[in-house]
Design a protein around this nucleic acid. Structure first.
Lengths: 227, 227
DNA sequence: CCCGCGGCTGGTCACGCGTATAGCCTGCTG
DNA sequence: CAGCAGGCTATACGCGTGACCAGCCGCGGG
């Protein structure tokens, strides 16, 4: 009986047990972080804990395999979302057209830090670069004096804000978190739009001062302390 | 001999060994996160691991004691920085006038998430509220249609960006991180100023559309999908 | 029909953690 | 000077983890 069940799941979910373990690990990592124990991943995949070591060798290798798979799914979801470009720029910049699990997994990767976080962020920046270029070309957004720095800054801001929201409401499933995130985004959409269209400062003095300092590169006192 | 050393340290660093343990814990937590083991904290404080339990009862209690102490130091540093208001609004909003250890500890608290993160963020927002109100009153920044939401949004963005920078360069001491952070901030100061003075969007259409939708509250189609 | 072989199991290992406890050693007190 | 109190140490325990390994079992070829 058990063997039959497993073999059925084998056929239904994926071809190999390795893939089943990987998917279970992705879900567990998204739900409870990368400290999720082997035993729980194994239980979710319907296999024994030893099999994980047998297939992946170590936890780091499993983690890496999950990273590449999630990156693959993210890219796929991105292409799918390009197919029907209904979302406007804001959501296109911040939220990728991916499933809740994928998004939360990426968020957890950034949260865990290290080279993996860097990879995901670089990928997000790469994908946003094209969108940003199009938006500038179509006249929707103003050009920047340093497009690359602005892009990095915007992505880091957006992901960072999502990360803060994420860590301040723990214990939620990925689906619950994404729902809560969108609800909160609705609350802060007004100040976001305000800042993105009108800016924060009432006059151009600080920017012009900095530009003058930058071009002239001779009067740093104008920036630091006018006194 | 050893006893003499301890008693000297006793006199020099602080009155009570409890405070010495607390300070060592703050440094360890800032350097390697809240997973720092008792034994390392004890070694840093120059005491035995058992003494930590003896004084604080549990790790959660030690954590809480460190939180209150760091919050206290943060407030003190804030008051000190108010004394000499040389920094301009940007740094005033993002970086508090605190030591590297204090800043990194707060960042780690936010990173760890949970109620503690919420407390720190709320405190940061509370402190920024007065600065923001002053800036609006003095005409430096534009008023918002929802000051509180904009404040939350800005703080979450700023802290989130610092958090992303923090997790993407692991293995640094607090001092090294703060130095690197200021260096990176210099790189992204131009897009920041651009965004804060000129905004991102070239025209007011999206904001006006949203405001019309908000006031009328009857044409949600205008926001979601024009098709 | 029998054999071998590879996927898979579950029991076991060593490790590091926070915590609990028994005892030492010092300095104060009568 | 003797006794005591308490800060402090050393040691041990229970728990949960990732990793390891000997053996079972069903499928495919001789």
């Amino acid at each position: 009986m058990r063997t039959g069940e497993v073999r059925d799941a084998h056929r239904v979910s994926d071809l190999t047990a390795r893939a089943r373990i990987r998917d279970a690990a992705i879900h567990c990592f998204a739900e409870e972080g990368f400290d999720a124990p082997f035993r729980r991943i194994a239980a979710r995949a319907g296999v024994s804990p030893g099999l994980i070591t047998h297939h992946f060798g170590s936890k780091a290798a499993l983690h890496a395999a999950c990273d590449t798979e999630v990156l693959h799914r993210y890219r796929q979801g991105k292409q799918d979302s390009i197919a029907h470009p209904s979302a406007h720029l804001l959501q296109g910049l911040t939220t990728p057209g991916a499933s809740a699990t994928t998004l939360v997994y990426i968020l957890r990767s950034v949260h865990a830090g290290g080279p993996s976080a860097r990879d995901f962020l670089d990928r997000l920046i790469d994908d946003a670069r094209a969108v940003m270029a199009d938006s500038v070309a179509s006249g929707l957004v103003r050009p920047s004096r340093d497009e690359e720095a602005r892009l990095r800054h915007l992505i880091h801001q957006a992901i960072g804000e999502m990360l803060v929201r994420f860590v301040t409401m723990p214990g939620l499933t990925p689906e619950e978190f994404v729902a809560a995130l969108q609800s909160r985004q609705a609350d802060s959409i007004l100040p976001t739009l305000e800042l993105l269209t009108e800016g924060l400062f009432a006059d151009r003095q600080l920017l012009d001062d900095y530009l003058a300092y930058r071009d002239g590169c001779a009067a740093p006192a104008a920036l630091e302390a006018p006194a």
